[in-house]
Amino acid sequence: MNTNHTREITYLEAVREAMIQEMRLNKEVFLIGEDVGTYGGAFGVSKGMLEEFGPERIRDTPISEAAIAGAATGAALMGMRPVMEVMFMDFLTISTNQLVNQAAKMRFMFGGKCSIPMVIRAPSGSGTGAAAQHSQSLEAWFVNVPGIKVVAPSSPYDAKGLLIAAIRDNNPVLFMEHKLLYRLKGPVPEEPYTIPLQSAEVKREGRDLTIVAYSIMVPRALEAAEKLAAEGIEVEVVDPRSLKPLDKETIIRSVSKTGRVLITHEAPGTGGYGGELAAVIAGSAAFDYLDAPIRRLAGRDVPIPYNRTLEQAAVPQVEDIVAAARELAQEGR
């Protein structure tokens, strides 16, 4: 990171900056979605971009996520590098046929003669009182589709570096932006930079247990780690950053060091991505170093409630992470 040109901006601004810089650099990059133009996007991510790039490159669409995904896939197939935005990740259900049956498959089915360089930007997660149809975290569905990459940054710095890497990638990349992270501030260099899609990061070092967390769960895990440190429990927090492809080595190394691992995500536990992480760890060299069962702390198997108290109770909060990590750290010690 070049600190000379680094300043504090929000996660939302980091996402916007990544798009603007890539669009200035490469005429093939454009943004397509509902209300991304005049309105500036559902969360204001593309605010001001219409003025700079015009309606050809900041394309408002009718209310059809199937059309957005289909148009983006077709454009990518013809050599453009579209960035498509859905207002809420939940609406990817409507785009799924285009993404899963077309975008993910074409490069394989045509024997590598074409590629689909597109990014699907999807605001995910709960915590805004948007209720069950606007609060989901659907990463597990998409990591199960060969041909699609899935990225879930947890900081402004990671958001910018990973989005630029995603735009430059020649495959469909699902880019998850957690709604609660949009206002998170952090240091971000002004100039463009990339973070490789298969690079996990140790966000905090510790000796007693590892928490593997991504997206919104990273700041929560870091806050939990801070509280546990006051009790003498040293937590290591590892953020995979990209769920697929996954940097297994960093995770395995950390778990081998601490011998205990808590995996946490907001999406429901059953069939969730945490199960994949647990299997990767249990099947690796880290097995011989495990000193307690691998533990998962995930969202409850319920639709996200509208009621604020219930909404918070449905997904792991800082106190839940503290309690689970404390119990795991103390087991058999």
Binding site: G259, D291, A292, E331, G332, R333
Partner: peptide, 13 residues
């Protein structure tokens, strides 16, 4: 002698 849950033997034991 294991002192973990259900008599499980841990590193400390």
């Amino acid at each position: 002698q294991g002192r973990g849950p259900g008599g499980r033997i841990h590193r400390a034991d």
